[in-house]
Design a binder for these strands. Structure first.
Lengths: 194, 194, 194, 194
DNA sequence: CATGAATGAGAGTTCATTCAT
DNA sequence: GATGAATGAACTCTCATTCAT
């Protein structure tokens, strides 16, 4: 594939992402993509055979972009609890964001394509986040900020709560207070028991 | 509507439920329903204009059936912790059940129809469950089985974890051990801190 | 299927026949049929899923119509040689007819669908004709008109020559004299050897 | 056209022949050719505008290759009946060969392109074969091997029977016994009447 | 009420053909 | 000469929805 082709493919993926954000996964037709990209019907098929293929590439892009979420904009002297709080704040922002995200499309896609657990993007992201949170908690314990007997369990609990909040926000909407409450509850579990 | 009509409508709803269980919400067409019910195309339109209307009635049915989930098969001398454990076991069974449930259809439906929070079925069920769990925890505290400073917060935490597990099981599959781990973690939070 | 449906199906088959006559088999699209019948796109699909199905029904119709080719318009006192001559004259007429027949479509169809020899229409028709010709030759031998040591072989030879002429006429065109010549040759083989 | 061009054109023709053998004529697209030749889409159009042009060149190639079918591998002292028998055996082999030939493509092509009889390849080949067979029969009469009052008529009869067998084998399949029977019948017509 | 034939819009897909490089 | 990306026309097929019976 030529350089130009790669660029065009990238262009399609980016435009497609917008469409998936707006309409979810199932609703999206090849025609939608064609129109969003302002290319010809046949042209799209040169790059992607169907919305599945396209979405998979959108996901790959997503993953790359997401890989550097942690560890960014974190000042040197931030404490573990600062970092965790920052992470949760970030999650909160996303949960409450009015502009639609790729989340619904991702859910819809994975309802149909329960990929072998191994290379399931969702699992990878979840596990990755659990790992980082666990490390943060351990660091917090070291520094005396946190108290926790089961850091991994706590990390997992946090992530499942976030997942629950996420699906809740997508299906019924949740007020900011609800998110705050859950975050607070979770953080208190780590510090309360002095 | 005549008696016969009511019966037929009920029949359609039940058959439709099976279709939604099998195919989710978005995938289902009026034709699917017609075929599942073995009625005429026109006949279906006498009762429902589209799959949305139908699904809403399926949900109502679901709600009625679900209302008596708690408080069933509970022996007189069961302690609060027994009841809570029973509830969680029930949830676990559903999470791991191989036979598809209405869950995916429900998610897909609510992705599109974020009903005003007021009469949102999902919210109602969630809040209802939180309330019951809170009461159980309080009872457990009374009886000395549990220790917990924020019963409602704990109840909510449990429910969000369950939601997280549910969506996880639908999108990537989760092993039994993962469910057990989360349930255990949650229960220990209630009893550990003596 | 209702009475009206049967009629409409019949109507489609007849119209489709015209299309196949004009365009052969492979060239014909469902759209062609739709336009010839002046019905809606979806309407056609109620009756036939593809051109194959349709063509098979055209063939069935053809077969029924053809079954009474022999034994028609034959006066009582016709001799076997008269009848055979009549048959060959009929074949000649068809071979030379300017108006296109279903032949090309039939060939094209069977190039793709070499049906199990058992229920292959072409084979049936061929064998049927061989049988009748054989009987005629035997009758001619009885009456002293013909002399032939291998009536069945002769009958088969006649039919293969006719097939050869038919495909020749469809692929390169043949002049009347060529047909006459072959028919004459074949007839002389039956009477010459006194 | 440069030397290299001529070679490339030849290469395309040969590859195209394989495609036509496999898929007949109508089914074949320019894309099929491009893929079979592993050249660029535009590249093919430099040499051929459509499948018709291509097929015509395939036919020319075919004709050249075929011209030396007779008179090959024929030992000096072979008698006319030996040679005729050899020819028929060759034809039989082709008729029964399992590997697909160009025949179907040729038929399909000529269904659409009834070329002016003058330069119709099929007619030329047919007439050529008739001529050779006639000469063989005449030689056989000279040598006393054959008896025949109308050598040309007999030659034509043989060729039409072969044509009939050929189309039969392409559209319904014929068993070896059927071919043998027809060949035997034809040969007996030449020698039987002592 | 109930039926199911009929319509037509719209999605998917494939290719012949062109054209800038 | 050669490439292959791009276009757009054409075809297949499926459904939501209507309506005469």
């Amino acid at each position: 594939m030529s350089d130009k082709s790669v660029q065009k493919k990238q262009y399609i993926i980016e435009k497609a992402r917008e469409v998936f954000v707006e309409k979810g996964f199932k609703e999206v037709t090849m025609k939608d993509i064609v129109e969003a990209c302002d290319i010809s019907r046949g042209g799209l098929y040169l790059y992607f055979q169907n919305t599945e293929e396209l979405f998979e590439d959108v996901l790959k892009l997503e993953q790359e972009d997401a890989d550097d979420v942690f560890g960014q904009n974190i000042s040197e002297e931030a404490t573990p609890s600062d970092i965790l709080a920052l992470f949760l704040k970030e999650q909160k922002k996303e949960l409450l964001s009015k502009k639609p995200s790729l989340n619904v499309a991702i859910y819809e896609y994975f309802f149909k394509h329960k990929v072998s657990a191994k290379d399931n993007l969702l699992k990878k992201q979840f596990d990755g986040a659990v790992y980082v949170i666990e490390k943060l908690i351990q660091a917090g314990i070291q520094s005396g900020e946190f108290y926790c007997e089961d850091p991994r369990g706590a990390a997992r609990n946090i992530m499942y709560v976030l997942e629950g909040l996420k699906i809740a926000s997508q299906t019924r909407g949740i007020p900011e207070t609800a998110v705050d409450r859950e975050i607070l509850y979770v953080m208190q579990g780590l510090i309360a028991d002095e």
